[in-house]
Design a protein around this nucleic acid. Structure first.
Lengths: 144, 144
DNA sequence: TATTGTTATACTCTATAACTATA
DNA sequence: TATAGTTATAGAGTATAACAATA
């Protein structure tokens, strides 16, 4: 049982404000960056940290094994990943990012960042600082 | 052609930071508040502002007419909205929020806000102020 | 003819259950 | 037996095309 030092009721108004702002931005960015589908994009992002098995990827994405199997097949078909049987356990297949996959990942990230940057173009330095501070706090609050 | 007073390249790092923080929070809230599906929830939210035709709702949600037709049927089946033929144009049907629908909307909002508020419970007053300021700036940047 | 809404159909992403091949 | 991966099948949510009713 966690001890609450504060009644969360007081926090509802600011909670709503922060939540709606974040959700609004997330929707906006998603609607304006049609590159690679999110569920494929995130798989490439995981693989950037190194090769992984399909099961591992399914766990990280909190998705079923068959779903991840399909995603990996799709990515392989597009040439963004390669699959190789694990020499130490022939049941497993090691999924790796190809050069083309790395490119697609960077392109997708650049699309999103450039769209976001364009939104910030008219901000004052003080406003940018406020946004940066807010982002830091949000990351801290949401956790890992 | 818009005149850019600033090169957006400089803004990429902060753009990424703000974008990732917002997307992370949005995903987190969505994953932890399983009440009414988002595409149905938002329809109820639109109807809170007053009755509307299906076509109108489809436009606001940027969704096809058949998709909205299905959503409204689903909501009607659950008793959250009612449909009535427009007396002034028998082609149209006016969709209205029922009391039960209003309740579902408020419950869904409360779920999301309470989850968010719980995340903020350990923040200092200064941190809350920073988050609020960040949210205001984000709303301004994203626009209407 | 044009418009509102629906039905028919299909595609994508998700899931569970059943199968295979290894361990 | 248990595990990694796949295939089979189905359920949401989305779309376009074709239709009905009304303007």
């Amino acid at each position: 049982m966690t001890v609450r030092l504060r009644d969360t009721t007081d926090l509802i108004p600011i909670a709503r404000e922060v939540r709606l702002a974040a959700q609004s931005l997330a929707r906006h960015v998603k609607d304006h960056t049609p590159s690679l589908a999110p569920h494929l994009f995130t798989v490439l992002a995981w693989l950037e940290e190194g090769p992984a098995t399909a099961r591992d990827l399914a766990g990280r994405e909190r998705v079923s094994a068959p779903s991840m199997s399909k995603s990996v097949s799709e990515l392989e078909g597009r040439g963004f990943v390669s699959r190789a049987v694990d020499p130490s356990d022939a049941r497993q297949k090691i999924v790796s990012l190809t050069d083309s996959g790395r490119e697609a990942l960077h392109r997708g990230r650049a699309d999103r960042d450039e769209y976001m940057a364009a939104l910030l173009v008219d901000c004052t330095p003080e406003e940018l600082e406020g946004l940066q501070r807010g982002a830091e706090l949000l990351r801290k609050v949401v956790g890992p």
